[in-house]
Design a protein around this nucleic acid. Sequence first.
DNA 1: CCAATATTCTGGTCTACACCAGGGATGGTG
DNA 2: CACCATCCCTGGTGTAGACCAGAATATTGG
Lengths: 239, 239
Amino acid sequence: MAEAYYMQLTRQLREQLRYGGATWVDEVGRLPAERVLAERFNTTRVTLRQALAQLEGEGKIHRSNRRGWFVSPKRLEYDPTRDAGFNDYVTAQGRTPRTEVLGVTTATCPAAASALGLDVNHPLYHIRRRRYVDERAVLVESLWVVPEQAPGLLQERFDHSLWGLLRERWQLELSHRSIRMVSEALQQDDASELGVATGTAGLNISRTIFDTRHRPIEYDEEHWLHDALSIRVELSNTT
Amino acid sequence: MAEAYYMQLTRQLREQLRYGGATWVDEVGRLPAERVLAERFNTTRVTLRQALAQLEGEGKIHRSNRRGWFVSPKRLEYDPTRDAGFNDYVTAQGRTPRTEVLGVTTATCPAAASALGLDVNHPLYHIRRRRYVDERAVLVESLWVVPEQAPGLLQERFDHSLWGLLRERWQLELSHRSIRMVSEALQQDDASELGVATGTAGLNISRTIFDTRHRPIEYDEEHWLHDALSIRVELSNTT
DNA sequence: CCAATATTCTGGTCTACACCAGGGATGGTG
DNA sequence: CACCATCCCTGGTGTAGACCAGAATATTGG
């Protein structure tokens, strides 16, 4: 079967993007409007959008709600097994981090946190944050901390590393951690907080963390834009 | 803004799927044809396809080339840090594994394997396999093994665990491993070998593995269907 | 000069239709 | 009974148009 036209289109656009085509993309990485591109390639908006969606799936470009298409920045390298703070590893990669606290409350144990082994009615500290890399919102996260392990936690500030806080202020030793990663389509709430459309491709990273005596410390759930990160894990000497 | 109709449609379809709607999906998990569904919901095929694409992104359903839409089976739990064989952990989850060897050759070091620290012209054993879960092709993988570490490897059979083979026959101890995971759109070759369309959402898992004396052993690259797996990593007592 | 308002531009959604190629079943043939 | 050619149904791709709501910008009024 002859190759579909939109696949050729995809390839052409990808080429242009690779070489930072000056005539194509403006200085902030914005692509020309869909109507303009469609006309330039002598095709329909529908077909053009297939090509754009293709590149979006590859993580090359992303859309900003009714503003246009933008070239996606380099993926952030991220090791979810380390407890290095977000600010640290973003900075280490020459990028600029920022964290926004969206909410700090006390809630009951969510169903997803059942791995902590607590009663469903057990109260937990609940912190919700949004994180940026170079002023692009790349993830929202919810953390549920066992209050007995860190009394008075909610009075703290949460724009820095939570794990660092737990270690320094409460001398908590993070020992066993169970990490789960699964591709997802972003749900309404998470999507709108990230300023993208519901259903945008994302990656869900969840952790359940215990201390050295196997007591539960916290459960957290991160929702990333799929094109924002590249996971890297370094391991030595297992099993 | 009023919710788009295709989002309502998505929700309705999702509900039907959740309860295994007997009237909807036949015994092999096949959905009615697009034209039929579109008519049933009194809308266009284009709009309906938006809803189906939505569910595809969530990993609820998947398409089989010109055959139709099918309910996606449960995700496979997979720990890429362990060296348990594919057959073992698939079986342990009550599923049926199968491995097909697609090719066994000697090749030069691919660019992606540069982490091995070998010269680009260094020859490597190259093994390419396709793996199934319950007769659904879920991944293709390429392995590049350093021949000095396992002379005569290509005479072996590769429908079982390669790591088990290396351990038993050559007494290789896998020590340091560097793992990378990144969402991707499946490229032409991988996609066609998996029987899906080019650009289908996938997950790329790559490993670079060294022995206890930091000598490179192998580099491998897995391309999974994004809806086929859920990654789970268990860790204790790290830094 | 600043703030409120109107306008323009962008992607988001949708209709209605058309043709194609591959997968699968059907039915005929040796 | 086994095999092969045929046909139908399916999703894949494409055209040509339309309207809407939000974002960005220009304009206007104080």
